[in-house]
């Protein structure tokens, strides 16, 4: 078992509070991803769970046992660092067996476990090498091997893929996910890459400025973001935001183009921020008029940048496009896909 519960976690450096009361539940076996812009406190939170950082207030529990005051070595949590932190003076085998050696396991037992973990990660031929003799991806796998060899309750990852090139990153992403499916160990994974978050997570926790903005499954966050920040952060290309007002039960742009129906609860004249995902816009014979700006085919789909009311609007379509820049086109929003946010508070209305 390995469920992690965070209760009102606060952390201050001197007078500056960087975590403002984080509540979070990570269920046993769950893959949770912490995501958010740089400096929002992801690493700090992860390190607090690891025990590498003290917290100013709150409670960290592992399987309902408060572990606030336990040193890292007594938490039964393994961590993979961004720069891997492999011990340069030890071979791959020694690196992986280090925790077992500290736990005073027998030589044969260490050897057996290291070989088993190396087998899972395709590291057997590399066991006698030193870290400096490995490629980036191999180092990454050794760092993971060092974590799994111990069979801990929880894995923590802090941006483990950020030092790899794009192709390797995609490959390692699947490897980590597969590993998780195979071992079922509770995982907390930090990244600022929302695609990583979307593809890997059972549960995403979006953070900003030391607060949790929203948590939920990837599709919950995608379909029902609670505010403009989450809506804009999750999804690529990002959601479009348009200033609009409510009139006669419809949402219209300043130039009068109709985007879709408004909920009854909104009185006429309310100012709202309309949010539309790029794939929820389609070309039609009638609807809001726009001008084609950029056309970017990626093969399977095409991304169009449209100009409307002086703002840019990105749409994607799987249809082949025969337009050219400067053409006037009409667009509509897929029914039920228009999101509305309060212009002042940026909270989701609908």
């Amino acid at each position: 078992m390995g469920s992690v519960t965070l209760n009102n976690i606060r952390k201050s450096y001197g007078a500056v509070e960087v975590l403002h009361g984080i509540d979070l539940q990570v269920d046993d076996g769950e893959f949770t991803v912490l995501v958010g812009p740089s400096g929002c406190g992801k690493s700090t939170l992860l390190r607090a769970i690891a025990g590498l950082e003290t917290i100013s207030d709150g409670q960290i529990s592992l399987d309902n046992e408060v572990i606030n005051h336990l040193p890292p070595k007594r938490r039964d949590i393994a961590m993979v660092f961004q720069n891997y932190a492999l011990y340069p003076h030890m071979t791959v085998a020694k690196n992986m067996g280090f925790s077992l050696r500290l736990a005073k396991e027998s030589k044969s037992e260490i050897d057996r476990k290291v070989r088993a973990a190396a087998g899972i990660l395709d590291l057997v031929p590399l066991l006698q090498r030193y870290p400096k003799q490995l490629s980036g991806g191999q180092r990454q796998r050794v760092a993971m091997g060092r974590a799994i060899v111990r069979d801990p309750e929880v894995f923590l990852f802090d941006e483990p893929l950020s030092n790899l090139d794009a192709k390797l990153r995609v490959q390692m992403r699947s490897e980590i996910k597969e590993l998780h499916q195979r071992l079922g160990t509770t995982t907390v994974y930090v990244t600022h890459d929302q695609i990583e978050a979307m593809t890997m997570a059972d549960k995403i926790v979006v953070m900003r400025g030391g607060h949790v903005e929203q948590m939920g499954s990837p599709l919950q966050l995608y379909d029902r973001p609670v505010n403009v920040f989450v809506a804009g952060f999750i999804g690529s290309p990002a959601m479009n935001f348009i200033d609009a007002t409510v009139q006669n039960g419809t949402v219209i742009t300043p130039s009068g183009a109709i985007l879709g129906p408004a909920p009854d609860s909104l009185p006429d004249g309310s100012a709202v921020t309309a949010g539309i995902r790029p794939e929820d816009i389609f070309l039609s014979d009638s609807g809001a008029e726009t001008t084609v700006g950029l056309i970017e085919p990626t093969g399977a789909e095409t991304q169009l940048t449209l100009r409307m009311d002086g703002a840019s609007l990105v749409m994607t379509t799987r249809d082949r496009v025969t337009l050219s820049p400067g053409d006037a086109v009409h667009i509509r929003v897929t029914e039920g896909k228009l999101r509305l946010f309060d212009t002042q508070s940026e909270a989701a209305i609908w």
């Binding site: 690891a50 025990g51 590498l52 040193p71 890292p72 070595k73 949590i77 393994a78 961590m79 660092f81 961004q82 720069n83 932190a85 011990y87 340069p88 003076h89 280090f98 925790s99 500290l102 736990a103 060092r146 111990r150």
Partner: peptide, 27 residues
């Protein structure tokens, strides 16, 4: 010497002193 090496050792079950003697000082 990157502090992560020591932190990593502590996550691996080392005390601060063990991290110092087994990881930091050899380097």
């Amino acid at each position: 010497i990157p502090v992560e090496l020591e932190e990593s050792a502590m996550m691996d079950g080392a005390s601060r002193l063990q991290a110092m003697f087994l990881v930091v000082l050899p380097l």
